[in-house]
Structures are given as C-alpha cells and as structure tokens.
Simulated assay, not measured.
Amino acid sequence: MTLSHGDNGAIVALISGGHASGKRSGAYILKDQLEKLFGGSKISIKLINMNNYLVTSEKQKLGSRQPNDYDFIRLRDDLNLYIDRIEYEVIIVYGLYALFDKQICDLATVRIFIDCDADVRLGRWIKRDVLKESHEGKTDQEVEDLKEQEKIKLEKLLNVYLNYSRQEMKLYINDTKENADIILPRGADATGFKLIVDGLKVTLLPLLQTTHRSDSQTSTFSENRSGSFNNRDTFIQNLKNLSSEPSVMSLTNDNFTNTKKIFYDLN
C-alpha cells in the first residue's frame, strides 16, 4: 500500500543537504529537542539514514553518491511500513537525496534543506573523516604512522570531492533545495531546529496527550492518528503564526515569490 500525504498520523521530517553539511547532526538535534520537549518515554522517533540504502556498485565504492546509487524503492517501502505500523509519532529521514524523490516528499510533514558554503563543508568533511583521531598521548612513531594514514585518507577524500561530490551538488542536490519548506543556511543550527520544533508542537500535542503504547489503547491510538496530524499545510501555518524573528517568509532568490518556504537566517 502506498500512502498519500495526509493518510497517516506520523510526522515525517526530511533532512537534506550537501556532503558534510550537517544532515546527521541535524537529525539528532531534532530528535533530542523533541524528546526534551515531550519526554523521551512519551514520544517514539525513528531515524532513517539514507546511506543504508546505497546500492553496491563499483562507482559507489569509489565514492559516487548520485541518485542512481540509492534504492529509493526500498526506502519508500520501508517508510510506508514504518508509517503503517502506527509505531512512531515522528520519522526522520536524512541524507543527500532526502528531498529528491517526489513520492517521499509527498509523505513529508516538513522538508528541511541544510545549506552550507562548499569550503566549509569540505573543511568539516576533512575534520570528520581525516583528522578525527587525536595525536595526543602517542609516541613519535605512532604520530608518524597516523600522519601517513591521514595523508592517504586526505588524498582519497579530495579525489572523491573533485571527481564526484562537486558534480553531484551542481547537477542534483542543489536543485532539491526547491522542494524544501525550510532552508538552514548555516548548517545544522540548533536555534533553527528550535523553530521547526515550535512549528511541530501544536501538531504533536493532541496526539501525545491521548496515546500510549499499551495494547488496550491500540484502537484509540489508531483513531487519533487517522486524522491529518502530519499535514504539511498545518505545519507551515504554525510557523507563520510564530514570531517573525528569527525567521522570514519567502525565500527563493526570485524576489521572494515562494510563499510556502521558510528561510531561517542567523543574521
């Protein structure tokens, strides 16, 4: 069964962005903020990493992350399965192409794009994958060995960046920004996600006040979720009703013509 938008009660959040922009960090920030707001035992959240849906191929092994390197059909099937189970209040999907597939976007309550300068992303990528191990407390020989390993990792990373990721950003990922409701231009900013949580709060409260995990309440749980708790328009309206600071409506570069997009800026 393929669910259309509004047929289920689970809130589905999609978090997309470029390589090393902070998608995983953003997913965990959103999860942590929701759990702090509602209590970890009262809200059930499922995280889905799109890297788990990479298709094994020689290009993928070399570092390719183009759309055809992902199994979107399996991801859609799993997402529908999690929604059908009536097990989670919130499902968070994060990855390079979280906003690429139309059917997945149609299931979403909120679509988030984490934007970030290319040089900043490359620096974060190097720090995360190359310089993650500290030199402190190591012998001179161990430091030399580690530096040699870092040199090899850096060369491999730069090859991936130059041969794949720059083209992927230009050809595919940047275009998915048009599918976003909210753009965070400074990476995975906690204050920006606080705005998103505030927008979701009105939607989640009636669901969480009357639902629990016991078998005796399964029917009540299902009834409460049969409405439009995941309605994207409701979420957007909630954001509009919030204070105008620190968000501004609008948001593309074409003279602010897109009234269904939220652009959060730290400045």
Rank of each mutant, 00 (worst) to 15 (best):
D101M: 04
T2N: 14
V110R: 01
D7G: 02
L47K: 01
Q237Y: 08
D129Y: 03
K102A: 15
H212Q: 07
L96Q: 13
V12P: 07
K201V: 00
N80C: 09
F113I: 06
S165V: 09
S244I: 05
K46G: 01
K194W: 00
E155T: 09
F235V: 05
Y172H: 14
Q237R: 14
L205T: 15
L37R: 15
D198G: 07
V90H: 12
Y70H: 04
L62G: 08
V55E: 05
T234A: 08
S21H: 09
N230K: 03
A98Y: 03
N49E: 14
K23V: 05
Q60Y: 02
I45Y: 02
E155D: 11
S247L: 15
N49V: 06
D84Q: 15
T203W: 00
N241Y: 01
E133T: 14
A98G: 05
L122Y: 02
S250I: 07
A10H: 06
L96I: 14
K102T: 15
M169Q: 13
G6D: 04
G6P: 02
D189V: 14
T252I: 10
N174E: 09
I91C: 08
Q66S: 11
T257H: 09
Y70I: 07
D119V: 06
W125M: 06
F229A: 12
L62M: 13
Y164P: 03
D233F: 03
E89Q: 13
D77V: 12
L195T: 08
N80H: 10
D7F: 02
L158R: 07
T220W: 03
S214C: 15
L79H: 07
I48Y: 03
K177G: 09
